[in-house]
Design a protein around this nucleic acid. Structure first.
Length: 264
DNA sequence: ATGGTTGCTTAGCAA
């Protein structure tokens, strides 16, 4: 199984690039974040007339207008679809979707950014991560074939940040955010890209501003986390930096896809 | 310290 996660930063703006990427890489599963469209617009406006099906993909979405929105695209039909975390919290932000694809449970998460440490959005980020952990503990087991992936808006280690000192106190690197991620991993998940690149220096997000990509000033915020039965069968994990290249005329997302190959 | 850019929506928010 080839599985990828990609924050597309508007699926409408990334329509052409997304279809071209699917055609070139043919992942079995692609988890997208920041769709910025409703479920209705995804089907009727972004990919009308069965455009995705013609490309060989099923799609299940949990979208909203303007902000957030997540999708699981797969070459076989996803089943057991869950939108949101089913925990009774009235969360207006569409940031989580899960489904079974080819015998693997896929959880696609768009973790809140948090804006600034101490803000209301920061509190929401930490609470959201705690809810994600509760949801996993309630609905899955570390012995399951499970992937939790997405944009975590957390760089796990200093070696996942080009300039760690500059970001140390940011919402992306703050010890409380890293502790929340560590708690998820301790439940029974392995960061498969970190396993394949222990020295770090592999990034998945570069700010649009200040020529960050050209200056190699990035962070690894997009993660593929696998339970032990799957992590042991991961043969490759990489970032497709090519998708972040080019000028604004090429309309790259500010994130690049992270891809893993699992021998299942 | 501030602002730099992109996307959605059309002045301002979120990232």
């Amino acid at each position: 199984m080839k599985i990828a996660t990609w924050n597309v930063n508007s699926v409408r703006a990334r329509h052409d690039r997304l279809l071209a990427w699917l055609a070139a890489h043919r992942p079995d599963v692609l988890c997208c974040q920041e769709l910025k469209v409703t479920d209705e617009a995804f089907v009727e406006e972004v990919f009308p007339a069965g455009e995705l099906a013609a490309a060989g993909y099923h799609a299940v979405t949990h979208g909203q207008k303007t902000y957030n929105g997540v999708a699981i695209l797969a070459r076989t039909e996803p089943t057991g679809v869950a939108r949101g975390m089913d925990d009774g919290v009235a969360d207006p932000q569409a940031r989580a979707i899960a489904a079974d694809v080819a015998g693997v449970r896929i959880v696609n998460a768009y973790v809140p950014n948090g804006q600034s440490v101490g803000s209301d959005k920061w509190d929401y980020k930490l609470a959201w991560l705690a809810r994600l952990g509760d949801w996993l503990a309630r609905s899955a087991d570390p012995s399951d074939k499970l992937i939790v992936c997405g944009d975590f808006n957390i760089a796990p280690r200093d070696c996942d940040v080009a300039h760690p000192d500059a970001w140390a106190e940011s919402v992306l690197c703050h010890p409380d955010a890293r502790a929340a991620l560590a708690k998820l991993l301790a439940w029974g998940l392995v960061d498969v890209l970190a396993e394949h690149h222990p020295a770090g220096g592999v990034y998945s997000w570069w700010d649009y501003r200040r020529m960050a990509f050209q200056r190699h000033d990035g962070l690894r915020l997009d993660l593929l986390l696998a339970t032990a039965p799957l992590a042991g069968k991961c043969t490759a994990a990489d970032v497709d930096r090519d998708q972040r290249k080019g000028t604004k005329d090429d309309k790259p997302s500010d994130h690049a896809p992270v891809i893993a190959t699992l021998d299942v």
